[in-house]
């Protein structure tokens, strides 16, 4: 099976690890967990309020390699997308891109949930 180097990189050298200041305006934080294995994932976005575009994304994940790769890929994908576009990212796309085995599918679900949680947090904060 041949995988593109780009994909494997998400495992070996995950992108966007770190955090944004969660009190800063225009940010949104999603914190999710997987009860199947006890993984915890935090994903944060920074949004340009003028056009609702996600300008930056960071994550920190305590979990297995697949969970880390899924969150790394998720941050890469949301950057540059509008929040509506980001809302439509499906876990199955992550499964396909990372070729996750069935036993690791919950890792991709976690990443999808994290994106949605971060966006709804942003919306709540910007409205309030």
């Amino acid at each position: 099976m041949a995988y593109s180097d780009k994909v494997i990189d998400h495992y070996k050298d995950p992108r966007n690890v770190g955090s944004l200041d969660k009190n800063e305006k225009n940010t949104g934080t999603g914190l999710v967990g997987a009860p199947e294995c006890g993984d915890v994932m935090k994903l944060q976005i920074q949004v340009n309020p003028d056009n609702n575009q996600i300008v930056d994304a960071k994550f920190k994940t305590f979990g297995c390699g697949s969970a880390i790769a899924s969150s790394s890929l998720a941050t890469e994908w949301v950057k540059g997308k509008s929040i509506d576009e980001a809302m439509s990212i499906k876990n199955t796309e992550i499964v396909e891109e990372l070729s996750l085995p069935p036993v690791k599918i919950h890792c991709s679900v976690l990443a999808e949930d994290a994106i949605k949680a971060a966006i709804s947090d942003y919306k709540k904060r910007s409205e309030g």
Binding site: L31, V32, G33, A34, P35, V40, K60, F62
Partner: peptide, 18 residues
Amino acid sequence: KKDDLPEDFLQEMFSLQE
């Protein structure tokens, strides 16, 4: 509800992991 947890529990776990 399969992923039910006490309130703020995830936040606490994340901090403990850190």
